[in-house]
Write a protein that binds this DNA or RNA. Structure first.
Length: 943
RNA sequence: GGGCGUAUAGCUCAGUGGUAGAGCACUGUAUUGACAUUGCAGGGGUCGGAAGUUCAACUCUUCCUACGCCCACCA
């Protein structure tokens, strides 16, 4: 196949993805191979691909493709999460757009609508993941509401219940008044907002007074509306100001209700007046104080209405004028908060806040302005109300025990390790997990109540009925489970659990690795650890890799409201999926967020183009696909050198991948491909493939050097065996090396590498590849390469670079071909000049090179690894410039040499430093002082 | 209040107990056969600050400063 001169990602991406998917490339049959398994964090069915997904999935795909190439039975489980709240919100919003609402339907009708929505517009992200090139096993795509998944969820719930690890409890929960459901601690986000701090007088009852004669207690609050449900005033037991009134009462303003004054350590004497109002039904601290004061949860006052919304309830305790009000002002309408303040002010019970203006004048305000940390629901976005309800709780502390041990003893390795502390900190202080949600969309809790309120937990109604006994009327719990309860089962429920005889489950659980963003460490990762241990008796994976966030170019968090969101699909359109993927990999260094840098994405698009053109070059020079995995036998220095370099980069890549250093892996293959293969190797073999006509009319024949150049000295001893030719060898090695690049680069840039793989035909004449790159074999380039050969190329490279640099500094045209003399040649120099004269001519542009003294006269002097060439430049060279150049180099070498000399002269260093370090210093010193001598001689030569 | 992270070239980031690298940007230069989405060459950093350990610190320790994140709390 001939490649077009331009490379357009869009065409090849769609074509190859379809081919891989339809041909089963993502999960080749490898029954005997070692399994390698990753489960993909199931995206919400409502979701679409954002830049964070692009990072997360790129990393996983790199690992999966790498392990697949290494011959493993690589399985990447994919699917979607039903995302209870998010999905219900989407569908409800759709109804609202048609002036309709959820409650116009029965629960069953509404759930049908959600399924309809899913069928029509859910799961966009699955198509977008394909555009990124992700090689998941779509043939087994999962959904957390699939029938078998539901069974796993129910079984887990029932088992936990029977083990006493799930229980029903009445306590304060984080209530989201917008979504009208309880949510877990993790779903609450603290935000600091500007608020007010009010001070009130609570009159003491029964004519009691404080020690100082006051007939009231001062309390302060940021939530005055809750005073309607106050049940006590607490003071510190040691606070002498209030000692006389503990056990007495205050009369609550507005309602006139009498509440006790209790002693409790929660009250901080240093803070405010030292007395605090206690509202057990609407504050987590107060709840605890209330319990300590002997108030049963069932007796705690609740001032909100039955829907749990912000309205006041007619609880006979709430005055009429408050009923129907929201908690706070909404849409300009006064709320309970405002009315409480207003009434207290009218009653003269508001203690004003005295503020000083800039001019020093005192001004009275109703309240003190304050920054207040306020809980918000992460989905609904409104202020959370701590609310007293009956909910289902998981004993998370118990379930956390084994995961903590797993991480502690290394059964699970968290990468990077720095996250372990955070993990332990959370797990060791974990609170009961509220798992019930007052929603319709989700896994309905398998609990049935009889009329007396007894609960029966079972897999289905029949079982519950048999527990309850015939004739007992049962009603199923209306609530559904937290979405994370089901996704916690993902590593095994997707593989067939809890059914018996599931070969996939046996082979692929535990999984091998989990990759996730650190933002879901607690939500998902930790809960998978708990459920893995609980259901399977094992950690779900031995390794957890946590990556950071992708941030906007200025370092800020991407968010829709800020309008700084970068769309990964837009980047794919513009630069290709391969470039975006490579960017993600190259920027992914452990424990750090990634800042978006579009220039860099562009750079990796350029890298793809570079590879594309290198392949075009190979094609036009008869370089075919290789037919063996093993490195070809090579005798040419350049070929041996590139084989050695392939081995080198391959081992770098493997060790980077073993450590999950995606950046190191990407950079290794990048540098090798561009800086070694393209910049040097392809240039080194050009003279072999297309020899220049020999200079001076001397014919080729036996005088030719092995790399296609004219040898400086005839070498009649060279033998030519069989049909070996330098050209054949070079084509074979180049084709092999290119193939290795394609394989090694494939996990990072799957599309272009697959395209080029197939563009490269096997054997001259165009027989097609036997198999796709996606299922090719990882390099195993164990080959002997001689140090002499690789040194020779390193020497040529050093010479070339130094000649180019010198020419550039002296203003000599880079293309100028110059004759060179080498008065004192090292063995390496002598043999290299003989073997690789063509490379020296083409790259260093030195020809002829004469071993021996140069004629007297002006010359440029250039060294290559210690061999000092003299390049006469009569009439061209500016002697002063050359002197300056050499002097600069001399100064630099002298500085190095002096520094090393100083170190070597330090007895402490020689005695106490590692012997290798001393040896290295000696070598470096010898090198630099040698260079000093040579440069001095060179300067002397110029006079 | 507790914990974590970051600070290295103009920018974005690697890095190692032995004297600092990449990409981009910048400067100069090259163009008839792989590639201008390119080649070649070059300039540019007292590695946030201070002290300590060490023969040797960008690297280890402590402290400080700045920025960021997580958890808890502020009645």
């Amino acid at each position: 196949m001939t490649l077009d001169t331009t490379f357009s990602p869009a065409d090849i991406e769609a074509r190859w993805y379809k081919h891989w998917e339809t041909s089963g490339g993502f999960r080749p049959e490898r029954p005997d191979a070692e399994p390698f398994t990753i489960v993909n964090p199931p995206p919400n069915v409502t979701g679409s691909l954002h830049i964070g997904h692009a990072l997360d999935n790129t990393l996983q795909d790199i690992v999966i493709r790498y392990e697949r190439l290494r011959g493993k039975d690589a399985l990447w489980v994919v699917g979607m999460d039903h995302a209870g709240i998010a999905t219900q919100m989407v569908v409800e919003r759709q109804l609202e757009e048609r002036q309709d609402k959820r409650t116009n339907y029965t629960r069953e009708q509404f759930i049908d609508k959600v399924w309809e929505w899913k069928a029509e517009s859910g799961g966009q992200i699955t198509h977008q993941l394909r555009r990124l090139g992700c090689s998941m096993d779509w043939s087994r795509e999962q959904f957390t509401m699939d029938e078998h998944f539901t069974k796993a969820v129910l079984k887990t719930f029932v088992d936990l219940y029977n083990d006493g690890l799930i229980y029903r409890d009445k306590r304060l929960v984080n209530w989201d008044p917008k979504l009208k459901t309880a949510i877990s601690d993790l779903e609450v986000e603290q935000q600091t907002i500007a608020g007010s701090f009010w001070h009130f007088k609570y009159p003491l009852g029964d004519g009691v007074t404080l020690a100082d004669g006051r007939d009231y207690i001062e309390v302060a609050t940021t939530r005055p509306e809750t005073m309607l449900a106050d049940m006590a005033v607490a003071v510190h037991p040691d606070d002498e100001r209030y000692a006389s009134v503990v056990g007495k009462h205050v009369v609550l303003p507005i309602t006139g209700r009498r509440v006790p004054i209790v002693a409790d350590e929660h009250a901080d004497p240093e803070l405010g007046s030292g007395a605090v109002k206690i509202t057990p039904g609407h504050d987590f601290n107060d709840f605890e104080v209330g319990k300590r004061a002997g108030i049963a949860a069932g007796d705690m006052l609740n001032m909100l209405d039955g829907s749990g919304d912000v309205c006041q309830t007619a609880d006979s305790l709430v005055p009429d004028e408050f009923i129907g009000l929201h908690r706070f002002k909404r849409d300009g309408v006064k709320g309970a908060r405002e009315l409480v303040v207003e009434q207290l002010k009218e009653l003269g019970l508001l203690i004003p806040h005295i503020a000083k203006t800039k001019k020093g004048e005192e001004v009275e305000h109703d309240a003190e302005p304050r920054q207040i940390a306020t809980p918000f629901g992460d989905r609904g976005g409104v202020v959370i109300e701590p609310w007293l309800t009956d909910q289902w709780y998981v004993n998370a502390a118990k379930l956390a025990e084994k995961p903590i041990k797993d991480v502690r003893d290394g059964t699970i390795e968290i990468v990077p390790k720095s996250w372990e502390k955070t993990f332990f900190n959370w797990m060791e202080n974990i609170q009961p997990w509220c798992v019930s949600r007052q929603l319709w969309w989700g896994h309905r809790i398998p609990a049935w109540f009889d009329e007396a309120g007894n609960v029966f937990v079972a897999m289905n109604e029949e079982e519950a009925q048999s527990q309850a006994g015939d004739g007992v009327v049962l009603t199923r719990d209306e609530d559904v489970l937290d979405t994370w309860f089901s996704s916690a089962l993902w590593p095994f429920a997707t593989l067939g659990w809890p059914e018996d005889g599931q070969p996939l489950l046996e082979k692929h659980f535990p999984n091998n690795l989990l990759i996730s963003g650190f933002d879901i460490l607690f939500f998902w990762d930790a809960r998978m650890m708990m459920m893995g241990q609980y259901n399977m008796g094992e950690a779900p994976w031995p390794r957890l890799y946590l990556h950071g966030l992708v941030r906007a170019a200025d370092g800020s968090k991407m968010s829709k409201s800020k309008g700084n969101v970068v769309d990964p699909l837009g980047l794919i359109d513009q630069y290709g999926a391969d470039a975006l993927r490579f960017f993600m990999a190259a920027m992914e260094s452990q424990g750090r967020d990634i800042k978006m840098d579009e220039k860099r994405v562009e750079g990796y698009r350029n890298f793809a183009t570079k590879l594309w053109n290198a392949t075009r070059f190979c094609q036009s020079n008869g370089i075919d696909a290789s037919t063996t995995l093993k490195a070809p036998i090579a005798r040419l220095a350049a070929n041996q050198w590139i084989i050695g370099e392939v081995q080198q980069v391959c081992s770098e890549l493997e060790s980077a991948m073993a450590d999950l250093r995606f950046d190191a892996a990407a950079n290794a293959i990048y540098q090798f491909t561009w800086s070694k293969f393209c910049d040097w190797y392809l240039e080194l073999i050009k003279p072999v493939l297309t020899p220049l006509p020999p200079a001076g009319g001397v014919g080729g024949g036996p005088e030719q050097s092995e790399d296609g150049g004219a040898a400086p000295t005839p070498n009649p001893s060279r033998e030519r065996e069989g049909d070996w030719t330098p050209q054949l060898e070079t084509r074979e090695v180049a084709g092999w090396a290119l193939d290795q690049i394609l394989v090694m680069l494939h996990p990072f840039m799957p599309f272009i590498t697959e395209e080029l793989w197939h563009a490269q035909a096997t054997y001259r004449g165009g027989e097609k590849r036997q198999y796709d790159l996606i299922t090719a074999s990882w390099p195993n380039p164990r080959a002997e390469v001689s140090k002499e050969a690789t040194d020779a190329i390193d020497w040529v490279i050093d010479l070339t670079t130094n000649v180019r640099s010198a020419k550039n500094e002296l203003g000599i045209p880079p293309g100028a071909k110059l004759a060179a003399f080498l008065p004192e040649a090292s063995d390496l120099a002598a043999s290299t000049i003989e073997r690789s004269s063509a490379a020296i001519e083409r790259l260093a542009r030195l020809t002829p090179v004469t071993l021996g003294e140069a004629p007297a006269g002006p010359a440029m002097q250039v060294s290559a690894m210690g061999d000092m060439f003299v390049i006469p430049l009569e009439g061209i060279i500016d002697i002063d410039a050359e002197k300056a150049r050499l002097e600069k180099a001399l100064a630099s070498s002298e500085k190095e040499a002096r520094s090393l000399e100083g170190r070597l002269g330090n007895a402490n260093f020689v005695e106490r430093a590692k012997p290798e370090a001393v040896e290295k210093a000696r070598e470096d010193f010898a090198h630099h002082s040698g260079e000093v001598e040579r440069l001095k001689a060179a300067l002397e030569r110029l006079g």
